[in-house]
């Protein structure tokens, strides 16, 4: 049984359907990428899985439990945590307060989780007392991921973690995600940067207009002519490793 199973998920904003029945699986321990152009429905898919949106029909199963009717704050407690797109952090709080808030579901802030987060992101330890809104963009994204890790998730949903960051920071974030995964956290990642995502993930799904257009191992998708033209740029050098 897979850790996450999504079956024929349909989500609409009012009368406009954004997802027309997508299905996807994420096995325990994997990194899976969700690719697609702007407006394809990637964010909608993650928001529906994490309970921030209610699907019109379809099912979401997580760790053997059906979660598509559960509210978001409950789903977090089951071990599925979402790092939303865009506004990631509570900018009026300090770094420390943000991290404590991440552990909201637990009665006490778990020291082990805090230590792990500071090992992954040493820069956050230096800036513990700083108000999060005054961090740089890269540090804010680190904080968003760190806060999510404070919930000690089994599955982490990441929505465009590299958006708007300098190339060096993109690399740093991607490396850290790989490290988080090695420590045992399963990852479903949405990325605009398709070549980076295909290098990071074992498998990928490509969304087009609210449907799954392609799926398969990253190495296969990286060789796929349609993917290369649409997401990697024509003639882009192939750097995917099997």
């Amino acid at each position: 049984m897979n850790l996450l199973e999504v079956r024929n998920l349909v989500t609409a904003y009012g009368s406009i359907e954004a997802l027309h029945g997508i299905s996807l699986d994420v096995a325990d321990g994997e990194i899976v990428a969700l690719l697609g152009a702007n407006g394809a429905g990637k964010t909608t898919a993650l928001r529906t899985i994490s309970g921030l949106l209610r699907p019109r029909s379809g099912e979401v199963w997580f760790a053997g439990a059906r979660i598509d009717r559960r509210p978001a704050h409950d789903i977090v407690r089951l071990g599925l945590t979402h790092v939303p797109e865009g506004r990631w952090i509570f900018s009026l709080m300090t770094v420390d307060e943000n991290l404590r808030l991440g552990a909201y579901a637990e009665p006490r802030v778990p020291q082990a989780a805090l230590d792990r987060v500071f090992t992954l992101f040493p820069r956050l330890r230096e800036r513990r007392a700083q108000v999060a809104g005054t961090l740089s963009g890269g540090e804010q994204q680190m904080l968003a991921i760190a806060r999510a890790l404070m919930t000690r998730p089994r599955l982490l949903l990441l929505d465009e973690p590299s958006m708007g960051l300098a190339p060096v920071l993109v690399r740093l974030i991607i490396q850290t995600i790989a490290e988080i995964n090695r420590d045992g956290t399963t990852v479903l990642i949405v990325e605009q940067n398709a070549s980076a995502a295909l290098r990071l993930a074992r498998r990928a799904y490509v969304l087009e207009n609210g449907r799954v257009a392609l799926e398969g191992p990253s190495a296969d998708l990286a060789k796929n002519e349609r993917v290369r033209q649409a997401y990697l740029g024509v003639g882009a050098p192939l750097r995917a490793q099997g």
Binding site: A72, R77, V83, P84, R87, W88, M93, L101, G102
Partner: peptide, 15 residues
Amino acid sequence: LAIREDEAAAQAAGI
């Protein structure tokens, strides 16, 4: 404070 700033993000944090 989290809810005042961003209710969806607060929910995503388990609130």
